[in-house]
Structure formats: C-alpha cells, structure tokens
Design a protein around this nucleic acid. Structure first.
Lengths: 292, 292
DNA sequence: GCAAATTTGTTCGTATGTATT
DNA sequence: CAATACATACGAACAAATTTG
C-alpha cells in the first residue's frame, strides 16, 4: 500500500487489498476536479511544477506525470518558460455535410463554405489554392474509378476561420476533365463562384449526388504544424472523403477535407427539413461530468 | 541531417545553430520508420526497453519517452509483463448516417443497425437496454425543447460488433409519450422491430426528418473502460446527437451515440443515390505517409 | 539591450512495485 | 517460485524558452 506524506498531501487508503491509484493519478484527479468544478477557469495558470511539488509532497517527475495526464486529455497545456494553463476550448465551427437546399451543394464546397461561415457570424479566409498534377494513388484512384497512376489535378486549400487554421481541403479531378475543356482547373487561383458551377457551365457536368466517408485519426506532422497543435497528441483530426457523381453515376471528383477536431463540429440533415431548421448552433464544449 | 553513428546509435548533427530533435524523438522516429516501412508489422513485439537502451545507447527513461511518443500516436501499445507491440488497427465498421431508402431510418437505429452490420458480413450483439427515468439536463432539454428537469425516459444500449465493444447509444424520449400510451418505452427489453415503428403504430407519430450533430472528443473514464481503451489516451470518441422531428416539426426523441473512433467509420449519402451505390467498404486504415 | 530569475523540457541514474510468462 | 518486462517514483543536472529587472 502507498501512503501519501503529511502536510496537505493527498492520502488514499487502499481498502481491503485494493491497489490505490498511483500518486500521479491522484494528483491529476485532484487538479481535474479543480478544473471541472470551475475553481480553475480556462486560461488561468496552474501552480508551477515546483509549487505542486511542495503542495503534494511529490517529486518533480511525479508532478510532471500528473500534468502530462491532464495534457493528453486536453484539460491543460504547458508553455515552456511560462507555465501550465487550463485549456480554453475553441469556439466550434459547424459544417453542414448534407446538401444545401438552394444550390444542391454540400457544406465545405467553395461557395457554400463562405456563406455558412458568414451565417455563423464568423470570418473566413482561404488563400489561393496550390495546384498540382500527380498520378492517382490508392484512395484517389479507387474513388474516381481510374487506374493507378492516371493523371489527376489536385487543388489544395488551406482554410482559416477567424484567423485560426480550421481545415485543409484537397480536391482531385481526373485530367480528362481538363482535356475536355475545363482548363481553369489547372489555374492556381480561386474559381468563382466555384468549381461545381464551372464544370457545369463548361462541360455540362451535373453533380447528381455525392457520398461522404468520414474517419477520425491522429494528425500527421504536417497537420500538427498547420493546425498549430501541441506535440502531446491530444487533438485528433476528422477526415472526410467526398466523392461526387454525375447524372450518369460516374465519379468526377474526390474532395478530401481534414478538420482539426477541437474546433469543428458537423451537421447532417435527413428528410424534409424546413429552411428555418437549418441554422445550427454549436453544441456546448463543456467536459462530460459523468465519470463512473 | 541525421547520421547513423557507431554501434547503431542515432546521432543528429545540428546544422547552423539548428536545434536537433531531442534524443527520444530521434529514437521514436527511427522506430516509426520501421513500422511504416513494414519492417515491423502489426502485432509483433518491439525490442524490450532494456534492449532498446543498449541498441540506442540511451537511458531507460529516454527509451520510455520514445515509446510513449509512439503510444500517444497510436502506433504501439505496451502490455505490462509482456512487452511493447505494434498496434493492429481494428477492422473498421461503417455506419450510414443518412436515411435508408426503404425504411426512412438512419443507420444506427435499432432495425437498420442489425441489417447494416450483417450486410458488412459481421456479427452484432446488443444486450437489452438499461432504462432510466431522469430529469432532462442541458443538451437533452434543449434538443427536445422541454424545460430543464422535465421527465425523460433514457434507453441505454451497449453495442458490440464481432465481440468488440463498438458504440454506446442512449435515446431520450419525453415522458409525455409514455403517458400518451407508449408504455413499452419503459420496458427494459428490446422493442422489435424498433422504437420508431412502435411509436408510429402506437401514437401515429411519424418521423419526418432528423438532424445529426457530430463532435469528436476525448473519452471519459466510463467510455475508456467500456471500449477497453489503454490509458495513454490515443483514441478519441465520435459522438452523434440525433434529434428526430415529427411531421409537425416537433422533436420527439434525442439519440446520443458514442463511437470509439479507432473502429468506426461513417457514410453520408446526398442526392439521388442508386441502391447499388449504397454498400460501402471501409477506407484503408494505413497510416498517412506524407509527413512534410 | 542585456543579465538574471523563473519555468518547462530533456536526460541520466537508481530503486522498487506489479503483471505476465 | 523465479525470471522477465513494463509502471511508478525519487533525485539530480543541464538546456531552452520566456519573463523580469
């Protein structure tokens, strides 16, 4: 059995041979209580490691283990030279995945993106895309139903909301669309009002339907850098793969969007949805209290 | 630039005042290369901490920091007394969020759930629900548009696929539905073929539309226990809030489903979708190679 | 602008506990 | 029961980032 020392420290008596939680967890739990109870509010600095050491009569490494536990769970973040701070959850932005009634476009598509951001009273910034021609790789080839290595145009967008990096979007089109006349797909400039309209006007290509696939995963290094995520790995990314089909049910584009999971939420409408019901406010980001 | 040193140790020369990566990161990167390159395949055991210590001429703590880095990123997992193993990603199960053509029901709803699981060649197990009557709390009250504290029935399901815990689902109904005649909502047994049909037959309640809201967050303790997640915090949960409305556009239920993000994917269909296009195979779970 | 103080980050060494083989 | 392997905990020293004087 483990006993904490005297002097305001935590004591946990093991009952009946029960193994008590390790010391760093006791400290972490105590700090978590202070955060969830509101005694420590977002943005405030915690005690320094040295102060926590004295407070809990533990070694610095044990205190650091406790802080790491909280960091991984997204409750606090450490800043070298400054201290440890209670995380201030970002204001979530809500993307609608189902189609817009008027345009038939999904949220996140160029035109719809600006309007949806503005409707939520926020500011969108999307620099001109990076355009690249490559050979289709695994998922791209499979979704577009073209042989591996077939040339595709990739248009990559970095999207910011209220100045914060929000999502990364790359759309792949078969090069055949360019050859059939849609040369502007190769231009490294934003296509107004959007590529869907452009393809309809240029090639008569109708977007009859699309299918989204959604996964959640750990960000890679480039994504951690773009989203400015701390290196302790608390935030995941949500990735959507949108394959759009024409009226002949042939896929003509694949849009891959990567969202930082701490600042994005999503909505899907199904069935007869009145217009008035479409504006959605974010869910509260309060931590779950249930912990049994 | 990185140079392999003598005796297999890693050495990194800082160029022009560049700060080299810390030692534990160098070791982690080296191990990650071995994993992503396929030299270490899922399920195999890594060298023990002691062996890594000798291999990289680093202290045990430094080696453990490297392993922790990989653990947080979901590449490896440690098992006390056994060793450190390359993670074997679970076979993802795909849930369709948009409505089923025939039933008008969304994936994850009782009836649709079994069929969708079977269609993917897998086995579903859902024990009888736990039923509870409580006062409506924040989100529940808001979504059902009832005052806080109004009585609601909560029906909680634990769902397993191929024996592995897959998702936790709780559906909240206003008690007024029970008072109007839907007494079986209080029964702690599965309602066949499903509560949506039951409410239609009993009360004439039509599910005209629904709205899903999706967020990603860190699992709480009870979720970590149910999904059997390791305590190092790599896996997030994806949470959906489905509010269903009747033909008068009044919300009559809220279904909250929590999915372990490492074993679940999602699909949304939009537009005129042929039946044949509805069966979706999971996306590959290969790690992203791009790391710039 | 610079030096000192403060705070977190990295690395080492060591000892002991717990889980599994 | 013994051996092996990871988990927890302590102490110490120096490095890097930031703030303060």
């Amino acid at each position: 059995m483990r006993l904490a020392g005297l002097g305001g420290a935590l004591i946990q008596l093991g009952q009946e041979g029960q193994v008590p939680d390790p010391r760093y967890r006791q400290i972490a739990d105590e700090l978590e209580r202070q955060i969830t109870s509101g005694a420590l509010t977002p943005g405030v600095r915690l005690l320094t490691e040295h102060e926590l050491q004295l407070r809990y009569q533990a070694s610095r490494n044990t205190v650091r283990d406790a802080v790491r536990w909280l960091t991984i769970r997204g409750l606090v973040e450490t800043r070298p030279g400054q201290g440890t701070f209670v995380v201030r959850p970002p204001d979530p932005y809500v993307t609608t995945l189902s189609a817009d009634l008027e345009t038939g476009l999904g949220g996140g598509e160029g035109e719809a993106f600006y309007r949806e951001v503005t409707d939520q009273g926020r500011h969108a910034y999307v620099p001109d895309p990076q355009v690249e021609v490559t050979g289709a790789s695994g998922v791209v080839a499979a979704e577009l139903r073209i042989p591996e290595g077939t040339s595709v145009v990739g248009r990559r967008l970095r999207r910011f909301i209220d100045g914060a990096p929000s999502s990364l979007q790359t759309t792949y089109y078969p090069m055949s669309l360019v050859e059939e006349g849609a040369q502007r797909l190769l231009s490294a400039e934003t296509i107004f009002p959007g590529t869907v309209s452009y393809l309809r006007e240029t090639l008569g290509l109708e977007q009859a339907r699309y299918r989204d696939r959604i996964t959640v995963r750990v960000p890679d290094n480039s994504e951690m850098a773009f989203f400015r995520l701390r290196e302790e790995g608390r935030v995941s990314v949500l990735e959507t793969f949108r394959t759009a089909f024409d009226s002949a049910d042939k896929p003509f584009r694949l849009t891959v969007t990567i969202f930082a999971a701490d600042r994005n939420q999503f909505t899907v409408f199904t069935g007869r949805v009145p217009d008035a019901a479409r504006l959605v406010t974010p869910l509260p980001t309060a931590r779950k209290a249930s912990d049994g």
